[in-house]
Design a protein around this nucleic acid. Structure first.
Length: 429
RNA sequence: GGAGGCUUCGCCUAGUCUGGUCUAUGGCGCCGCACUGCUAAUGCGGUUUGGGUUAACCGCCCAUCCCGGGUUCAAAUCCCGGAGCCUCCGCCA
């Protein structure tokens, strides 16, 4: 959630942000007046309650006629307090529900527009020229099947469309990727974490996934659990309701977990292979920092992503995602898109978001620091970035490093995690 | 699944039986000041969190003793429901 003080003092900035996101600008004014009602009803309650307490203190000291009179007045006040309390609760609830619908205020440098209106910040590496090498690249599924690495037919038989098995060398490849990613993150000082994949509503809500993104989240009705779409959720909620000493910051984690996505509204998109699936594993980086450090941290996360992709020998571009394509929690988002040879375009492999204080306010994660000789508490900033989303990385790897005979060269960084193997060979059918 | 115990302002803790100066005790930690050649030690003071009021500060008011209801003029304290943690039993990877 955003800072209500900012909303009161500079509502135009919030309106502009909503407009840029292509979201309801009227929400800002609805929230302003709901906040007004919340404050006035709360004042009314506070005042009545103060009277009630003052009167209550006199009761035990009085006696006889006087006491009877006090009790009569107190009973009246008691009723008034009760109704003021109910009014206050209702007003607070209304303001809160409006506040939760409001997305983060976007960073001023973010390009305005929809999915196609991103800015390319940088291009790294050169897409491999298969025509010059004289052969037609196979797509990841054909390659994966040849290697005995991917089985989508049985995935569909057992679980339906967008499910798959990683088999044999495919399974080993995932484990190698995950180990290499965790090793890189650990070397950079991040704390490796294995996180829950089922979370309570508060964690999901606080991370910002129950607004517009709600239709993409699996929910277990009977137990009221949500399946996480990323370990960002359990990592953000890890410090929920805590106050962290400024000296402990930054806190950096590398979470590994399965990720579940309903992929609603993507009917017919990326139906072949394992590019877009309902369940996959991912290594995710997550940082808690002081708000003034957030932008520098955002760049840092991006650098670690670039280091990872470059190490895998992939060609990619970095984009500044446009306002209309930002998640509710993000003020700015950088995606790394890797070149997929058979698609002839760059596709998203990683994504780093700066949520500044937005998630921390919702989850009540604060920092305590010494300012001018006084201890102050304020929300901190959270950021997240993909290190390795396994299936998409496999797609890019197989296609990029394939050879004419259907074998695939293993990038050097992965070899130690594949028993020294430097090439994956097709298996006999 | 069954039985019992626990949950208080960063951490530990007093208070709950017997409702009202609980405006929540003490210790640790932390912050400030003093003393000191420096450090340590010591002394004094401060230190829950959130909301409101304020241009801001000071101050003041309200809420907050795991959460939600209830009883009462009045709830940390009594009653009901729930959550989490711990111990034991059962089942189980």
């Amino acid at each position: 959630m955003i800072d209500l003080r900012l909303l009161r003092e500079d509502p135009d900035r919030v309106r502009a942000s909503q407009r840029a996101r292509g979201e309801d600008v009227g929400l800002v004014d609805a929230l302003l007046s709901a906040d007004e009602r919340r404050r006035s009803s709360s004042s009314r309650f506070d005042q009545l309650r103060a009277e009630q307490r003052a009167l209550g203190k006199r009761v035990p000291k009085a006696s006889g006629e006087e006491k009877a009179e006090l009790l009569r007045q107190a009973a009246e006040l008691s009723a008034a307090v009760k109704s003021a309390d109910a009014e206050q609760d209702q007003a607070a609830e209304e303001a809160q529900s409006l506040l939760l619908r409001l997305g983060n205020v976007v960073h001023p440098d973010v390009p305005v527009g929809g999915e196609e209106d991103f800015t390319v910040l940088e291009t790294v590496g050169t897409p491999r020229d298969f025509a010059a090498e004289g052969f037609e690249p196979k797509d990841h599924l054909e390659l994966g099947q040849g290697l005995g690495a991917i089985d989508v037919e049985r995935g569909a038989k057992v679980s339906g469309s967008r499910f798959y098995y990683l088999t044999g060398v495919g399974a080993l490849l995932e484990l190698a990727l995950v180990n290499a990613a965790i090793a890189q993150a650990t070397a950079a000082g991040l704390t490796p974490m294995l996180t829950p994949a089922l979370v309570k509503p508060r964690a999901m809500e606080g991370t910002g996934f129950l607004g517009q993104a709600a239709e993409n989240v699996y929910h277990l009705e009977k137990d009221d659990f949500y399946l996480v779409g990323t370990s960002e959720v359990p990592l953000a909620a890890y410090h929920m309701d805590e106050i962290i000493d400024a000296g402990q910051l930054p806190l950096r984690y590398a979470g590994f977990s399965p990720c579940f996505r309903r992929e609603a509204g993507t009917y017919g998109k990326d139906t072949r292979g394992i590019f877009r699936v309902h369940q996959f594993d991912k290594v995710e980086m997550f940082s808690y920092v002081a708000p003034e450090e957030a932008e520098a941290e955002h760049t840092r996360l991006l650098e670690w992503e670039k280091q990872w992709l470059s190490g895998l020998g992939l060609a990619y571009q970095v984009i500044d995602v446009a306002t209309g394509d930002l998640g509710a929690s993000a003020s700015r988002k950088f995606d790394c898109e890797a070149w997929i040879p058979t698609q002839g375009k760059y596709r998203e492999l990683t994504s780093a978001s700066n949520c500044n204080e937005f998630q921390a306010r919702r989850l009540s994660v604060r920092m305590r620091e010494n300012k001018d000789g006084k201890q102050v508490t304020r929300p901190l900033a959270t950021l997240n970035g993909t290190l390795c989303a396994v299936p998409r990385t496999i797609v890019a790897l197989l296609e990029t490093h394939q050879r004419p005979d259907g074998s695939v060269t293993v990038p050097e960084v992965l070899r130690p995690y594949l028993g020294g193997r430097d090439v994956l060979e097709p298996v006999a059918k």
